[in-house]
Design a binder for these strands. Structure first.
Lengths: 146, 146
DNA sequence: TTTATAATCAACTGATCTGTTGATTGTCAA
DNA sequence: TTGACAATCAACAGATCAGTTGATTATAAA
């Protein structure tokens, strides 16, 4: 990655012309990525284009719910939809993902001890889960509270 | 970045032992990053450690609100707090950020045309904003609806 | 034409988010 | 001891989120 430095510089000047739009793009991209269903959909789309119903098949929630997840991805610019007739083909757009990577990678200089840091994060989560493990989830597939 | 490939492989096996914890770590990390106030706090912490009140100073919202933003960052593992007496010093922990980078960078192979993709995303946001621009924001610093 | 299918829209519910104000805790200083 | 200060807690309000079910739109097929 010898072009990273130049790349980031170019992006930064590009953003300076529309800083609000870029902020909003990051807001939406990170938010879209914060849900495991949406991340799974994106992983799937990494392999190619799929119909909404095909994307929905592996999940235990309604097609409508998946349709709205996809809408979140579309509004974040991560997914494009092409409707031909009654079917809608979804495909990936990694533009916002690249923007997210640029933002996050500003901290890459701290990643000498990435293993320790990640292990510590996981250990902390395990300890949390052990300390007060929920007896039962309130709703299936519901997002964990903490 | 000649070690990237080996790095990612190591992390993946590490995660396989606690997949749920890793999922939850990503959920929280991406969600924490989806708010511009929290991203600004993280940028600041990249320069060193700060008190809660110091982090709150640049913002127009209450100290309590900032305190809760920091709690979100702490629960995501991105920030550590050390309380000595009545003051609380906040510092950065890039572990979850590294995990987020690893996830996002699985799409780096698509980034040959990153410039076009990002520009398209920004152009789309601009077009949206022009089409139905809100006459006035409902609340100061409130998150944009779309 | 009638029927089945893909996908979205609409309305509703319960949970979560983000901000507010007021009270509280705990420490430092006059 | 008393008062100021850093930070959090607690309770509330308004908005958003994520799921549901039922209706609707539009195309494909019998």
């Amino acid at each position: 990655m010898t072009t990273t430095s130049a790349t980031i510089r170019f992006i930064d000047t590009e953003l300076a012309s529309a800083p609000d739009a870029h902020e909003e793009l990051l807001n939406r991209a990170f938010f879209a990525l914060s849900d495991p269903v949406r991340r799974t959909i994106l992983e799937r789309l990494g392999e190619g284009a799929f119909l909404v119903s095909e994307l929905a098949a592996p999940f235990d929630i309604s097609l409508q719910a998946i349709s709205r997840h996809i809408q979140v991805l579309v509004r974040a610019g991560l997914v494009q939809q092409a409707r031909t007739g009654r079917i809608s083909t979804c495909s990936l757009d990694v533009g916002p993902m690249f923007a997210a990577s640029v933002w996050v990678n500003r901290y890459s200089k701290y990643w000498q001890n990435q293993f320790d840091a990640l292990a510590a994060g996981l250990a902390r989560l395990d300890k949390e889960a052990t300390r007060h493990r929920p007896t039962q989830r309130k709703k299936a597939n519901r997002k964990e509270r903490r």
